[in-house]
Simulated scan of single mutants.
Amino acid sequence: MSVKLPPKTVNHCYLCAAPLHHKVTWRKLLTPTKEPVICDKCHQRFERVTPEQQKYKDVTALYHYNEPMKDFLHQYKFLKDVVLSEVFREEIHQHLKDEQTIIVPIPMHPEKQKERTFAHIDELLNAAGIPFTHLLEKISPITQSSKTKIEREQSDQLFRLKVHEAIKPTHYILVDDIVTTGTTLQHAKSLLIEAGAEKVTALTLIQG
C-alpha cells in the first residue's frame, strides 16, 4: 500500500533566502493552492504582462523579460537550478488547469537536453501539476537565441512530428519559456495545423 506524503513546506525564499511566512486563510482552505516558494519582495520584481501588452495573437505571456526575470531564467536554465521550476507553478497551474486541450511542450534537442541535464519546459509543467504530451521533436541542436532576428524569421522548419503520433482535430496549447520573435511557436503551430489540429494557441512564461 502506497502512502501519499504531504507536500513539503518551503520555509525560505528560493531566490533571496528570506524567511517565508505562510498565512492560513479561508480561501486557501476552501480552494487549495500551492504555497509560494519565493517571498513577496522577490515576486513583486517580476512584471506581469497585461492583456493590452500581449504582442502575439493566440499567445498568452505571463511576464515581461525584465532584469529579475533574466536573472531567474539564467539561474534556472543555464546554472541548472531545477528547483526553480516551482517559482511560477501556481500561475501556470491557474492558466492551464481547466483547459480541455492537449498540452504540448516545446521540446529540446536531445543533445541540448543532455547538456542541460533536464527539460526545462517539462519541469515547469510538472511543478504546476499539468499533464502534457510530447508530439514534436527538435530537428537541430542550434538554439534560436544564438540567431539574429532575421535569421530566426528565415529559419527552416524547426520541428518534426514524433513517429506514430496522430494529431486529432482538437485544440492544442503549446508551452514555452519565452516568446521573442514568435518564430518557434509559429513553426510548431503550422506543423500541428498541417497535421490536422483544429486550433493551436500558446502559453509562455515570458514575453521578450
Rank of each mutant, 00 (worst) to 15 (best):
Q113I: 01
L192M: 13
T117D: 14
A18N: 13
T184M: 07
E99P: 01
C39T: 06
H164C: 10
D81Y: 09
M108Q: 10
K168P: 04
I206A: 14
Y65L: 08
V49P: 01
T184P: 04
I139K: 12
P6L: 10
T170V: 15
K4Y: 06
M108T: 06
L135F: 13
I92W: 01
C39A: 05
I139F: 04
E86K: 05
Y172S: 05
L203K: 01
N11T: 15
F118C: 07
Q186V: 14
E90D: 13
L135A: 13
V24Q: 13
Q44Y: 12
I130G: 02
K55M: 12
Y14Q: 03
T183N: 11
H64G: 13
E165T: 12
F88E: 01
I173P: 00
F46I: 02
V87N: 04
G182M: 00
M69T: 03
Y65P: 04
E153L: 15
P110W: 09
P7R: 06
E35G: 00
H93F: 08
C16S: 10
K34T: 15
E115N: 05
Y76E: 03
T60L: 12
T143A: 11
I178G: 03
V87K: 01
L124T: 04
E99C: 11
A202H: 11
L158R: 02
F78I: 05
M1Q: 09
V59S: 01
E47T: 02
I193G: 00
H43C: 15
K4A: 10
T204H: 08
I130P: 03
I206H: 06
D122Y: 02
Y14W: 08
G129K: 00
P107F: 06
E151F: 08
Y65G: 04
K57N: 12
F118W: 10
L191M: 11
P19K: 01
H12M: 04
K57M: 10
K112F: 10
S145A: 11
W26C: 12
H95C: 15
H109I: 07
V59I: 15
P51H: 00
H187F: 06
C16E: 14
R27M: 09
D122F: 03
R152W: 07
V83P: 00
K77N: 02
D71F: 05
C16M: 12
T9K: 07
G182S: 02
Y63L: 15
T50M: 13
P107S: 11
E194Q: 08
R48D: 14
S85A: 14
Q113T: 03
H74V: 05
I103M: 01
E165Y: 03
T117I: 13
K28G: 14
A18G: 11
H120I: 11
T143V: 11
L185S: 03
D177W: 09
C13I: 06
E67C: 01
Q53F: 00
I139E: 06
V49D: 00
Y56S: 11
P6R: 05
V83A: 13
I193E: 08
C42P: 07
Q144F: 09
V179E: 02
Y14E: 05
K70G: 06
Q144P: 00
E123L: 08
